[in-house]
Amino acid sequence: MADNVNNWLNDHGDYLYRFAFARLRDTHLAEDAVQETMLAAIKSNGFKGDSSARTWLTGILKHKMIDLQRKQFREQPISDLIDLDASDTSMDDLFNQSGRWLDKPQTFNMPDNALEQKQFLSVLDGCLNKLPKKLRVIFLLRDVHESDNENICKELDISATNAWVMLYRARMGLRKCLELNWTGA
């Protein structure tokens, strides 16, 4: 059994870790997710060989990442997060009383070569790290849920409206941060 885990870790450990890190952007959370995946994999005996071990393990990892996210949401009720954010007026700073943009969005100068692309992604990474953790994770994990919103809400036990508000705030934060920090080359 431990042999199995050893093999899995040798063959797929780095891949699973990168998959988790790409979405959690936190080394400890990513390690936890891989550990939970191995514990679940060894118990399930579910590997039938009709898919590759990597595909099978990645499927388990996705569930474990959602579990981790759900736990985070339980520890701090979502209402706290929303209230907390509502009291900070950063969103109101973007629009005037009649709902018009105060600071009109500009088009991004998207990178047009490999070097710029690298710089751009590193700016984006920095912007992601500035977001509150929960907003970052709900935004980055969108692609591991069965993609539609109903599922995200069911899996996280939050209302659709709350999910939309959080995703909106994540996007507003990121685009503002990119506008400020990415001027193009």
Binding site: V5, G13, D14, Y17, R18, E31, V34, Q35, M38
Partner: peptide, 11 residues
């Protein structure tokens, strides 16, 4: 980007 050795041991 690799799963750190000590994380592997811990697992």
């Amino acid at each position: 980007i690799q799963l750190p050795i000590d994380a592997k041991t811990k697992i």
